[in-house]
């Protein structure tokens, strides 16, 4: 892609992309650490995840301000316009992803008997897929790659399948072990949070596709 005649326009766009990449990197790290803390019961690690969310929120505000400034001062057109609009929306979605990780981190102190609680062992695999989706969608954003974006969208089905399987598993565990219902309910919420992270990564992928080629990816249900 050629540079803009006005160099500072390129600098603004580069900075916008940098902020999104930074937000995404933090959100990805938060998912992984929240899951590590979940398994190990490391409350300090969990507290770090909660604290990091503030940083992600601050970055979102920065993206908003910069995007508004670019629209007001540069009147971007065509792919520039799509890039800025996509950045605005992606920042909002990544902020939500950060919230879900924070939500998981906050539940960690409420998980009892983590070594004996079998459904817990299912979560890391699910979390890894969700985390990979976030990682891949940010790579797709960085390289403006619509093909990788579509792959991320396809991966969401795996996260959904995991969620359904965990849901059934935990519910039957609740039936068999009523004493663990409180912890089991927490696990359900965590699985739900991971499932939402997958959905949001899908939303980001759609915006990446839009920014790159100007159209939304074909709806899987339609094809």
């Amino acid at each position: 892609m050629n540079d803009h005649t006005v160099k500072s326009f390129d600098e603004d766009i580069t900075r916008l992309r940098g902020l999104i990449a930074e937000m995404g990197g933090l959100a990805e790290l938060s998912i992984q650490e929240a899951l590590d803390a979940l398994i190990s019961g490391d409350e300090k690690l969990a507290a770090g995840v909660v604290k990091r969310d503030k940083k992600i929120d601050a970055l979102e505000t920065e993206v908003d301000k910069l995007a508004v400034r670019i629209i007001a001062l540069r009147a971007p057109m065509a792919d520039d316009l799509r890039e800025v609009i996509a950045a605005l929306k992606i920042a909002g979605v990544v902020e939500r992803i950060g919230d879900y990780s924070k939500n998981i981190a906050k539940r960690i102190k409420d998980i009892e008997g983590r070594n004996r609680f079998e459904p817990l062992t299912l979560l890391p695999a699910m979390g890894e897929i969700a985390s990979d989706m976030v990682h891949d969608v940010l790579s797709a954003y960085a390289s403006r790659d619509p093909v990788l974006a579509i792959e991320v969208i396809a991966t969401d089905a795996k996260v959904d399948a995991f969620y359904n399987s965990i849901f059934r598993n935990v519910v039957s565990y609740m039936v068999e072990n009523p004493a663990t219902i409180s912890t089991a309910a927490q696990i359900l919420f965590i699985a739900r949070n991971l499932e939402r992270i997958g959905d949001h990564a899908t939303n980001v992928a759609e915006m990446v596709h839009f920014a790159a080629v100007g159209t939304y990816p074909p709806d899987e249900d339609d094809s």
Partner: peptide
């Protein structure tokens, strides 16, 4: 034309990358 031009030259011109 202004949101999703087809031709690279159009794109370059309207986004200020021409020349």
């Amino acid at each position: 034309i202004f949101t999703n031009p087809v031709e690279q030259r159009t794109q370059d011109y309207i986004t200020g990358r021409y020349g």
